[in-house]
Amino acid sequence: MGDQNNLGTMYANGEGVPQSLKQAYAWWSVAAASGHTKAKKNRDIAAKELTPKSLSEGQALAVEYFEKYSN
């Protein structure tokens, strides 16, 4: 859960990965689904900044990542 939140932050800031708010949204969504409070706040902020298309793509990525990487 914390690692997934950290991945979201890394993508949001472009730290060691290409900067992508869509990817950040996806990872924060996975962490939020596991109960990470800060990830939920970050995800909600990111959602407001994404276009509807990017938000939809981020949501699809979140489902994929949750199925693959969630405990």
Rank of each mutant, 00 (worst) to 15 (best):
K41F: 01
V30Q: 13
L21Q: 07
R43Q: 13
H36E: 14
Q19E: 15
G16P: 11
I45L: 14
W28M: 03
K22L: 14
S29L: 04
G14Q: 09
L21S: 07
T37M: 01
S34N: 11
S20H: 08
W28H: 11
K40D: 08
A24N: 08
K48V: 06
W28G: 01
Q19G: 10
A31Q: 02
A46W: 08
V17C: 10
T37N: 02
Y25Q: 04
K40M: 15
A31E: 00
G35I: 04
L21N: 09
N42L: 04
K41W: 01
K48W: 03
K41G: 00
Y25V: 06
Y25I: 08
S34Y: 01
S29W: 02
T37H: 01
G35W: 04
A26Y: 03
D44P: 08
G16L: 11
A39I: 00
K22F: 06
R43M: 13
A46T: 15
K40E: 15
V30P: 06
A26T: 06
Y25E: 06
S20C: 10
E15A: 10
S20W: 05
S20V: 06
A39M: 01
Y25A: 03
Q23W: 14
S34P: 00
E15T: 08
H36Q: 09
K40Q: 15
G16K: 13
K22P: 11
S20L: 10
N42M: 05
G14V: 02
S29I: 02
P18W: 12
T37E: 03
N42H: 15
A33I: 07
S20M: 05
A46E: 11
N42A: 06
A33V: 08
E15I: 04
A24P: 11
A33N: 14
T37A: 05
S29Q: 14
A32F: 04
A32L: 10
S34I: 00
A24C: 11
A39H: 00
Q23H: 11
S34L: 10
K48M: 03
T37S: 02
S29E: 13
K41V: 01
E15C: 01
W27Y: 09
A24L: 15
L21D: 12
V17S: 08
A31R: 00
Y25S: 05
A32N: 10
E15Q: 13
W27E: 12
A47T: 07
N42G: 03
A24S: 10
Q23Y: 15
H36W: 03
I45H: 12
V30A: 07
Q19I: 04
S20K: 14
H36D: 09
W27L: 12
V17G: 13
W27F: 14
H36P: 01
G16I: 10
K40N: 09
H36N: 12
W27K: 08
K40H: 09
P18T: 11
L21T: 08
L21M: 08
G14N: 07
Y25T: 08
A31C: 11
D44V: 06
L21K: 10
A26D: 03
A46P: 07
W28N: 03
Y25C: 04
A33D: 14
S29G: 15
